[in-house]
């Protein structure tokens, strides 16, 4: 798949997502039934990823987040209680296009978005509450766990935007 031909645009009322399937019922239910409502209520913004023929290859939803210092350590070395973050709330690839680099494409796009927003508002981390089967994917992409991942149902991982220069 030519990733440079993928187009990303915000979800809107005319998008038909009834046939979207990524093999995860929770994510399918979210994009089919909840994503637009979340967006209209300013809770999460969802972006669809389309192929040139307009078919939907995937999507991601983003929102704001914060990570409590105590999730990292019980000491006072970091001088704020909550570390501001940009959260990847959902990220999924249509089952037809899995294994072709689309997930990586979507992740990199969110990282750029987060870094861009960090020039306008306090935003130190990119966070994700990962599906267990996706933890390895995020670890491979420089994310670090915030806690003992084996004890979390959806382990929270983060990428520090200070490790990236504009």
């Amino acid at each position: 798949m030519d990733l440079k031909k993928l187009i990303i645009s915000p979800i809107n009322e005319i998008d038909d997502l009834s046939n979207f399937s990524c093999n995860d019922p929770d994510l399918d239910d979210f994009i089919q039934n909840d994503a637009l409502g979340y967006q209209n209520r300013l809770l999460a913004k969802t972006y669809l990823c389309r192929k040139p023929d307009k078919s939907i290859a995937g999507f991601y939803s983003v929102t704001m987040d914060s990570v409590k210092k105590r999730q990292l350590i019980d000491q006072d070395e970091f001088n704020i209680t909550n570390i501001p973050a940009f959260k990847i709330a959902r990220l999924a690839v249509h089952q037809k296009y899995q294994g072709l680099g689309v997930r990586r494409f979507l992740l990199y796009t969110t990282i750029y978005q987060a870094k861009k927003y960090s020039t306008e508002i306090g935003c130190r981390l990119v966070t994700v509450d990962s599906k267990p089967e996706s933890v390895d994917f995020y670890l491979r992409h420089e994310f670090k766990p915030t806690s003992k991942i084996e004890k979390q149902k959806y382990p929270t991982l983060y990428l520090d935007l200070m490790t990236i220069q504009d």
């Binding site: 993928l6 187009i7 645009s9 992740l107 990199y108 796009t109 990282i111 750029y112 420089e142 990236i164």
Partner: peptide, 14 residues
């Protein structure tokens, strides 16, 4: 990842 994301982000349609 950031640099690639920057390229990809040009493909975002507002």
């Amino acid at each position: 990842m950031y640099k690639l994301g920057k390229q990809y982000h040009r493909q975002v349609h507002r």
